[in-house]
Design a protein around this nucleic acid. Structure first.
Lengths: 218, 218
DNA sequence: CCGATTAATGAACTGTGATTTATTAATTGC
DNA sequence: GCAATTAATAAATCACAGTTCATTAATCGG
């Protein structure tokens, strides 16, 4: 709206890279790496075929840069929150996982989760990077919280690794689903709720509180 | 071993299709649809470029046939088991989900799960099919079991959809993980256990029994 | 055993998509 | 304003991978 409408030409050296990476994110998540054409990325970014090559070596380079660009930022605020929290760690888990949902899961960046899963075997280095940058820190934090809960008596003695799984699986699934089946299969099978915050919150609560009625006699 | 070693020629009209589909499964799961070359499928199936086209229209047709071939069979035995079971449905869930792991999750067919997630937006019809054939039946069954548990008092009142999520997410994650990160990131971050039956069993147990110590006072 | 049939081959065809590059036009500094 | 610089274009290149098809060789019926 603000620019000269006549010129299809726009010189924006600074803005281009992130525009291209944003376009790439959307397309890679939607179509996958190989099925996404360079020209589509270019067009989605409002430029032509050649332009991405001014900023990136090649398609794979764009892929890598994209993962870095959309990931490296967000990790850190969470660790701080964890250390400051007082009181029941059940609440803390609820808060942290839902914060993650709000700030990552509900944004386009959540598509990276599906993408990483889909392309892990094609890009081992990236899978390793994703593991180091995201998975490991998350697991460490959840582990630490579980220990806190066990120490305080809030939780019963737990197998750590499996408990992390049970806690994180619904979140990861929700992010993954939102960018695969949810896009395509509309109202079917209850999984349409998968993307909703409340649904995720309920699932977490369940894992935390347990399914079994404590008053039930085995 | 048993065939004439001299001839690189083998006429096997009957065996070819499923050989090709098996090869396609392995490659599609490993590389994804677009990144998998027809010639690779052919070679993996022990034939040459042209042969797959004798049995299938094109690459997409192979993809569809593969999903059908590796799926349509297994559904049914589970429903029967569910209807016959007497006693605590907690046990029943444990049995059914681990049976699913043994018969699907631990076989190459589990890769279909990752593949379906990765390609859902590229093949909406297949996503729909997968939903109808696998997801919906599974959810219905788990739903029904949860209701049985609530009716008998074994479970407390539960939000059905979220409970299904919490129960199935670890299983789905385990299958997905086994064919993505687990293939690539070796021992890191505890997720290496993801593919093991015991680990899954523990996670299920946790969801069933709950994380919170019933004796803990809030 | 011989001809007819057809499974299988692999070379050739073709379209597509990644990458290169000569050209065009903003921009920047003097 | 004007030359130098460089962002951006768009046409051309090039390799690759999906598909076709003429040829080859098992197999099957008699």
């Amino acid at each position: 709206m603000a620019q000269a409408p006549s010129s299809r030409w726009q010189r924006k050296k600074d803005a281009r890279p992130s525009e291209i990476l944003d376009a790439a994110l959307a397309l890679f998540v939607e179509k996958g790496f190989s099925a996404t054409k360079m020209e589509d990325i270019a067009r989605a970014a409002g430029v032509t075929k050649g332009t991405p090559y001014l900023y990136f070596q090649n398609k794979e380079d764009i892929f890598k840069a994209m993962v870095l660009h959309h990931l490296s930022s967000r990790l850190g605020a969470f660790v701080e929150l964890e250390q400051q929290h007082q009181g029941p760690v059940g609440e803390l888990l609820q808060i942290l996982l839902l914060k993650w949902w709000d700030e990552v899961g509900a944004t386009p960046a959540a598509g990276l989760c599906k993408l990483a899963i889909a392309e892990a075997t094609n890009f081992p280095e990236l899978a390793q990077f994703y593991t180091n940058e995201v998975i490991s820190p998350c697991l460490s934090m959840v582990e630490h919280i579980l220990r806190r809960g066990m120490d305080s008596g809030e939780f019963r003695p737990l197998p750590i690794a499996s408990s992390c799984d049970a806690l994180l699986a619904p979140l990861v699934m929700a992010m993954t689903w939102a960018h695969s089946f949810a896009k395509v299969v509309p109202e079917t099978c209850g999984y349409s709720h998968h993307h909703s915050r409340e649904h995720l919150s309920e699932a977490l609560q369940l894992v935390l509180q347990g399914l079994k009625n404590p008053c039930y006699e085995n």
